[in-house]
Amino acid sequence: MPHAKSADGTRIAYWSQGDGTPVVLLAGQANSHHWWDGVRADFHAAHRTITFDYRGTGESDKPDEPYSTEGFARDVIAVLDDLGVDRAHVYGTSMGGRVAQWIAARHPQRIRALILGCTSPGGPHGVERGNDVRRSLARPGPAGRQALLELMYTPTWLATHPGPHNTLGDPSMPLHARRRHLAASNQHNTWDVLPDICAPTLVVHGSDDLLNPAANAARLAGRIPGARLELTPGARHAYFEEFRATAGPLVLDFLEEHDHGSA
């Protein structure tokens, strides 16, 4: 696979598939491009998809140094530069949504339309998950993994989809990279720059998301000028996969609206 070189020399692996208006798909914390495997093909009727492995994951370099969501955004720009893509839609979910906020605020000329899924502004204005959720995720071994699964998907879906589940983290990540990703996500705070976002923006969230509480969606939509808010009823964190039959067309219709407009 090709690699782009970020400003600090880190090599970032990326994948470009399909034809049409490009859309960058950004995965969650400590995940590689495989996060999108279950739904990526849904975009290819009208769009070229661009995914990449965050530094610390997959086939990208894994330096043991501080990471940040703003730094991940610069890595995305390096990928677009390497591909010769001037402007693209950007669809970020979970930590990828945090990265997408920085792209839209710092590099507005590179974005056609912005979609922020199951994400948060972070900082003091972000709504944190409950202590009970934190405790469940901190349990060692299979118990913690099961807790994460149940935060991602409903029991009904899990009963008929035994896995493997690509949203549970990149198993190849070294421990130092996992810690760096967690710190980057925890230190995220875009509240002051959200009003600078000028791209057409859709905020999407599962109504039953406890991993990243759904109240964050309203905070983002209220802070970004002209943003549209859509909650997916009954969905948990991985709404885009379990509820693809409703969330997918919602996203694709929004992208189609802005395929030829200016950002």
Rank of each mutant, 00 (worst) to 15 (best):
R74Q: 13
I103L: 15
C118T: 11
E150Q: 15
L149I: 05
G84S: 10
D81W: 05
R145S: 05
I103W: 06
A147P: 00
E65P: 02
Q146E: 15
G92D: 11
R139I: 00
T69E: 06
G117S: 10
A143P: 00
R135Q: 15
H89F: 03
S120N: 15
A113H: 05
A138L: 05
Q109L: 12
R74F: 06
P66W: 12
N131P: 08
V133T: 10
Q101N: 05
G84M: 11
A73D: 08
R139A: 13
Y91R: 03
R74K: 15
G130Q: 06
G96Y: 11
G122T: 03
S94E: 12
A88N: 08
C118W: 03
T69A: 04
L114V: 10
D64W: 07
N131S: 14
T119D: 08
L149N: 02
L148I: 01
D75L: 12
T119G: 06
L149A: 04
R110Q: 10
R98I: 10
L80W: 03
A78L: 05
D81L: 06
L116T: 09
P66M: 11
Q101M: 12
P63A: 03
R129I: 00
C118G: 15
D82S: 10
E65S: 15
D64N: 14
R74V: 13
Y67G: 08
R129H: 02
D64Q: 08
P63I: 02
S120V: 10
R110S: 09
G117K: 00
E65M: 07
P140V: 09
E70T: 14
H89L: 03
A143D: 15
G123F: 00
I115T: 15
S94T: 13
D82R: 06
A104I: 04
I77P: 00
V127T: 14
A113P: 13
E150W: 07
R98F: 09
G71A: 11
H125N: 15
I77R: 03
V133H: 03
L114C: 11
A73M: 10
A104Y: 06
I103D: 01
L148K: 13
G126A: 05
R98H: 04
P121V: 06
E70D: 13
L148T: 06
A88Y: 07
T93P: 07
D64H: 08
D81N: 14
L114S: 07
I103H: 09
I115C: 13
L83C: 05
